[in-house]
Design a protein around this nucleic acid. Structure first.
Length: 106
DNA sequence: TTTATGGCTGTCA
DNA sequence: ATGACAGCCATAA
């Protein structure tokens, strides 16, 4: 469990797991909630290193603009949107989410 | 050990 | 509204 040096990723995963169904959070938000303010990028890395079979709803984490960030592999990019829509998240014509409505408020 | 790399974010033009 | 710039810092090699 808690080692002296707790992995940063674990904290991030814990926060992401706490995101309710049908809600989204930004990278920066997750970082802050994980006790790592300013590490938004690391959150992205943590999710990137995440495995598909883990129980972490990585698809509920989007960037501050309310969009799905473009990453190296275009595959999961579309999948993420599909998964969010399946949870009731609505994307506008430009592929953006209304953070004002769907942002998770801890 | 050092170096390079970013699923980001905020500010400015 | 969009586009460019710099800053943040853990992980991987």
């Amino acid at each position: 469990m808690s080692r002296a040096t707790e992995p940063t990723y674990e904290r991030i995963y814990a926060v992401v797991r706490a995101i309710p169904h049908g809600r989204v959070a930004t990278y920066g938000q997750v970082a802050s909630l994980a006790g790592l303010p300013g590490h938004a990028r690391q959150v992205g890395y943590a999710l990137h290193a995440l495995r598909t079979d883990d129980d972490v709803p990585w698809h509920r984490v989007i960037n501050a603009r309310g969009e799905i960030s473009r990453r190296a592999d275009p595959g999961p990019e579309g999948l993420q949107r599909a998964m969010l829509e399946a949870e009731g998240i609505v994307f506008d014509r430009r592929g953006r989410v209304s953070l004002r409505r769907f942002r998770w408020q801890a």
